[in-house]
Design a binder for these strands. Sequence first.
DNA 1: TTCGTAACCAAGAACGATTCTAAACATCGC
DNA 2: GCGATGTTTAGAATCGTTCTTGGTTACGAA
Lengths: 170, 170
Amino acid sequence: MSTHASIEKAGEKAGERRASRVTGALEALGRASLRMTPQRIAIVRAFVDDDGHPTAQQIFERLHRAMPTTSFATVYNTLAALERAGSCRTLRIAGATDDGTARFDPNVAPHDHAVCDRCGAVRDVPAPAQGEPAAPLDDGFEVRSVERVYRGLCERCRKGAHRRPPSRAR
Amino acid sequence: MSTHASIEKAGEKAGERRASRVTGALEALGRASLRMTPQRIAIVRAFVDDDGHPTAQQIFERLHRAMPTTSFATVYNTLAALERAGSCRTLRIAGATDDGTARFDPNVAPHDHAVCDRCGAVRDVPAPAQGEPAAPLDDGFEVRSVERVYRGLCERCRKGAHRRPPSRAR
DNA sequence: TTCGTAACCAAGAACGATTCTAAACATCGC
DNA sequence: GCGATGTTTAGAATCGTTCTTGGTTACGAA
C-alpha cells in the first residue's frame, strides 16, 4: 500500500483518503457513464495508491504484475477517461524525469508541486491560503487558475541521501 | 514585457531589446567558447525574433526559408548550446500546444507565463514584485525558484477573435 | 601556408512516449 | 440470455527528440 517511508506515520488517515479516492474515482466513471471494468478498477487502484505522480510506464508496470495481459493503450485510455471524468490531472514538468513524459496526479483538488532538482521527485504542496481573486493581467488576460512549480532540493537530497542523479542522458 | 499586437506601440524599444538579445546570445556563445557559425547566427535571429515561445518545428520552418539545407538536428543542437550558454530556456507547458512539445524562450530573466486555454498562445508575464524570500516548505524542501503558469483566456479569445480551437487531436 | 585537432553540420536512423487501428470481447439495460 | 455499444488487446503508426556517421570548417601551432 504505502509508497514512501514517511507514510507509515500517517497510516490510518492516508488509508482512508485513498479508499475514498478510489471509490470517488470509480463513482466519477459511473457518473460519466463509462463502464466499470476490471482493468479500470485495477488501474484506479494502482494509480490512486501512488502519491508520487507516476508516469504511464510506472502505472503499467505495477499493473502488469496483477494483470499481465493488460496493454499500454488501456493504461492511457483509462487515464484519459479518468481525466475526462475529473478524477485525474496530467502533469508535464520539465526536468522532473526525462522531460516531456506525462505524469498523472490523482489529487484533483487545487494544489501546487515541488520538484527536486536532484532526484526528480514531484510532491504535492498545498496551494497558498488565500482565494487569490485572480485579477486580469495587464493586457486583459483573464486568469482562471494559477499553477506553481517549486524547484529546489527535497529534504532527503539536502541531507545527501538522494536516490540517484537526475540523469539527463538518454 | 509586451508580446503580441501590443508590441507595435513599443516598436523602437522592442527592436532595440531584440538587437541586444541577439548580440547577447551570440556573446554568450563566445563566452562558452562555442563557435559562431552562420547556422547559429540564423537560428539565434529567428528564435530571438519570436516572443511567442516557438517550438523547434516553428524555428526550423522559419530558418528553412533562409537556409534550406539546415537540418533539424542543428536546430536542436543550437538550442541546447544556447541553453548551456544561458541564453535560452526550455518550456514544457501541458495543454499549450499538442502537449509534451518543447517550447523555447529567449527571455532568461525571471518571469512567469500565461497560457490561453483556447488558442494555446503562451505569453510572458512579469514575475510578482517581491523577491519572495523562498522559505523552505513544511517538509524541509528547499525552494530555489518558483515558476507560475497562469491559465485562462487571452484578450483576443475573450473577444471571440481566437485563432483556432485548441485541437487536442493529433 | 600547411597541418592537426576539435568543433561543427547534414542526413537520416533510432528511440521513447503516445495514439491509432481492427478485431475480439465484456458490460449493462432490456 | 441478447444485443447494442463501449472496451480491451496487440501491434503498427506517429510525433518529437536525440544519436550516429561521415564529411566540412575554423583556428592555433609549426
